[in-house]
Amino acid sequence: MRALFAFLAGGLFGVGLMLSGMTDTAKVQGWLDVLGAWDPTLAFVLGGAILPMLVAWRVAGKRPTAALGTPIPAKPAQIIDARLLAGATLFGIGWALVGLCPGPALAALSYNGGHGAVFVVAMVAGMLIWHILHLGGAMRGRPA
């Protein structure tokens, strides 16, 4: 049951990304290109995506668990630290260079050809690099 709804959510997310134009790297780069031919489409996508979620968070706030019994995720501690700022900065630079973020990179994996696969493999490698760096840092932080 959990897997079925996870599959449906992933599928709806993917088709939404496809329909919205977010797998078109030219549109995403156009949104970031304020000095060039600026393309405001992404604002409509983000606005459209936030609307159902505003309702969902209100509904979620009124109940202790989700429909399948899992607790509604608690809001993480609202700490703005160097890790959050540096991570968002690196992500923003990578996003601009090619026009892909993780969701659209996966949604377009089937029709982006080999170049899309190269991006996804590099993205997975980047995630592993963070895991190794983070693990190393956490180990050094511990008393011997």
């Binding site: 709804f5 992933g10 088709v15 939404g16 995506a49 159902p52």
Partner: peptide, 23 residues
């Protein structure tokens, strides 16, 4: 318009994942 419609689908997917799966 396609951006808005696709965005609504993305939001609906996120809402379902939150309210059904709790993720």
């Amino acid at each position: 318009i396609f951006g808005l419609l696709g965005g609504l689908m993305i939001g609906a997917a996120a809402a379902m994942f939150l309210l059904v799966n709790g993720r």
